[in-house]
């Protein structure tokens, strides 16, 4: 599979920051395959949000380059195409709503792209159906729950028909129900509609279904691989101030006590099955 986003040896520091301090991004390289579900994990201040803003040219690297579908994000002439290819969803849904009716909000981006009215109508309806918010199309956004608002924000990005969506901690301000709604929605968009999803989060449980996980710390990618491979490095993650899912923590503790359970069992069902089997031995 070919990469839709290539981050090549990127370094970045914000303006006015101490030149002697380490940069926010310090020689970061990674590739995101088209159609995959990628999770970028890291604690606060690890550089993960700064990296996210590089993925559609909101920020451009001081050193190195970011290529989106082969286009360099430093090339101003390509910026509109880059933003059409990679859409962004942010943490706080209240800061992303621009209209007083749900469907107007979703229509905002295609209107700005100069899409003809008939097609806007079709795209808005389709996007709202994809996130399960079509029934709410004539509601006022401020009367929706957090999870519903975030799904409307995702529909607003979908209506641009991007090939990739980057979500920067989209669930941080949501309750467990809202979190589930958003994760199920983006998983479906990836698996059924082939849209590349890059999810930035510090909720380990949201990484369980990913194709690939990158772990960031102090501006570096410190670990990458499948969720099973990454989470099995329990000690390394803890050293970086990250926790592992409780299922992995349990398996880790049991292995430490000499019980032969698999470390890579991420779901409660797999974890229970592994323990039951080990006890029978």
């Amino acid at each position: 599979m070919e990469p839709i986003i290539q981050v090549k040896d990127v370094s970045f520091r914000y303006e006015g920051e101490d030149e002697s301090a380490a940069p926010v991004l310090d020689h970061v390289s990674l590739e995101i395959e088209a159609g995959s579900f990628v999770v970028i994990l890291g604690h606060n201040g690890s550089g993960k949000s700064t990296l996210a803003k590089h993925l559609n040219g909101i920020l451009v690297p001081d050193e190195g380059e970011v290529l989106v579908d082969g286009m360099d994000t430093k090339d101003d002439d390509k910026l509109l195409d880059i933003r059409r290819t990679v859409g962004m969803v942010f943490q706080n849904p209240d800061n992303q709503m621009v209209a007083s009716v749900v469907e107007d909000d979703v229509a905002f981006a295609p209107e700005n792209l100069g899409v003809p009215p008939d097609e806007i109508r079709a795209r808005v309806d389709e996007a709202l159906k994809l996130v399960g918010m079509y029934e709410f199309r004539d509601r006022a956004p401020h009367l929706l729950s957090g999870g519903q608002k975030q799904r409307v924000a995702i529909a607003g990005v979908i209506a641009m028909q991007p090939r990739c969506i980057v979500l920067d901690e989209p669930t941080a301000m949501l309750d467990p129900g809202g979190r589930r709604e958003v994760i199920e929605t983006v998983t479906r968009l990836c698996r059924e509609n082939g849209i590349t999803v890059v999810l930035i989060t510090h909720h380990m449980s949201e990484a369980v279904g990913a194709d690939k996980v990158f772990v960031m710390s102090a501006g570096h990618v410190i670990s990458e691989g499948t969720p099973e491979a990454v989470f099995s490095k329990v000690e390394a993650l803890r050293k970086e101030g990250l926790t592992v899912p409780d299922t992995v923590a349990l398996s880790w503790e049991l292995r430490g006590a000499g019980l032969d359970v698999p470390l890579a069992a991420l779901t409660p069902a797999d974890c229970a099955a592994g323990i039951a089997k080990a006890l029978q031995k």
Binding site: S205, T247, L250, E253, L254, P268, C271, A272, A273, I275
Partner: peptide, 30 residues
Amino acid sequence: AAADVAEKLRALGVPVPDGCYTVEQLRDAV
């Protein structure tokens, strides 16, 4: 998650006692 795993263990016939809801409790029970 620990309470969830404990429930699933019981369903698999592993007699985990009631009241395990943290990783440490479930570890000790197992």
